[in-house]
Write a protein that binds this DNA or RNA. Structure first.
Lengths: 206, 206
DNA sequence: TTGCCCATGTAATTTGTTACATGATTTA
DNA sequence: TAAATCATGTAACAAATTACATGGGCAA
């Protein structure tokens, strides 16, 4: 919340939710609206933000929040320095399902991965929209880098989905032994498995 | 927990924790040990697992858990069918820091990204270790696909880190205008920005 | 005038973590 | 014999969600 407000003051909780949905959520997370309101109240209690109710000049009653000097200090204290920011956390339900593939009806996983791929394509469009919304102004420099990262991340996610699809296909129609034919009358029918050895190329110099 | 037990019965809570740390965590999540114990008790209450204390035949007193028929049914009900499994959730603190780059002391982000890259390399080694541990047996087929996905995912993460490093460098020594030189006496000194246009290539046929 | 978006909140619940407590067995 | 690992738990707390409740403004 402080981060969002550090870009632009005078937002309402509702505004912050929409903003988080449109950009933060791609590389971090967008809290529930109820949590945003709760958190803003908490931050105000801590003196890190202030709020003012809109008067009758606005058609709609709302509460706009502004970050205080203390708030900027607190945010800067968190954002500066090289203290470790911790590993990324990934929860990928689809891969979990694949991991448990032995429990699934054969055709299922393919459907699920394809659905994931389509969803990722949609998300990619959203990222690009967000990226377009940032514009070229210098204050958008870092958000642009973050969203650029997200764009590439989603492209990578698409490739990962395709690769997994290929893996599953390989599993279905011909396990590793390389010596079985006509397993079910249509062996070798699948897409010709885009030549992709197991990558042995780790930049492991570390 | 049910998923883990569906591969191999007779594990202790402690076993499950180690196992989750070694494989589940790469694409999903590894719960705290205290939560594992709590969850196992809950599952037993629901009749989805049973447990037996080890008798004096074992040197150490432990409680081993086994999935019941009901448990298998419940797991299968969850794992079969094509109901949506939901989008992946990513919380990437590093990208969040970058997004707030305007608050950071100039050199900082570079250090953080490099640290992330090193950490990812280490994680990649762990994934490969896990992959080696699965072996070639057919019951490891799906875990192998999931871990293979994780391996590629970590490789992608490395590339994303490098690309972001390049973006940040570009930001530091010469914003888009393309007409500024000798900005700080070492313009153009950085790594020569591995030719990488903004990818316009979205497989967007969806 | 109906339904959607704006706007703010409360309450209950779920989910998960950390810190603490305990003790046995193995290994250096 | 000290430290690490195995093994299980309790209690307090933190984080976050869902469901519910309310009401004004705007557009079809």
């Amino acid at each position: 919340m402080l981060g969002l407000l550090s870009f632009r003051d005078g937002r309402t909780g509702y505004d912050l939710k929409k903003w988080a949905d449109a950009s933060l959520r791609f590389f971090y997370w967008s809290p529930a609206i109820s949590q945003i309101y709760a958190e803003l109240r908490r931050l105000e209690e801590l003196g890190l933000v202030t709020s003012r109710r809109s008067g009758p000049e606005e058609p709609r009653a709302k509460r706009r929040y502004t970050i205080t000097a203390d708030g900027r200090d607190a945010l800067a204290a968190w954002a500066e320095g090289t203290h470790d920011c911790g590993p990324p956390v990934l929860k990928h339900p689809l891969v979990l399902r694949v991991w448990l593939g032995h429990l699934a009806v054969p055709g299922t996983l393919r459907t699920l991965v394809e659905r994931h791929r389509d969803r990722t394509r949609a998300a990619l469009r959203d990222v690009r929209e967000a990226l377009a919304g940032v514009g070229a102004a210098p204050e958008g420099d870092f958000p642009r880098v973050a969203l650029g990262w997200s764009e590439r991340q989603h492209l990578a996610e698409l490739e990962l989905a395709e690769a997994m699809l290929a893996d599953l296909e390989r599993l279905r129609c011909g396990p590793p032994d390389g010596n079985r034919r006509a397993l079910d009358g249509r062996a070798g029918a699948g897409p010709p498995a885009p030549r992709r050895q197991h990558p042995q190329d780790a930049p492991t110099h570390g």
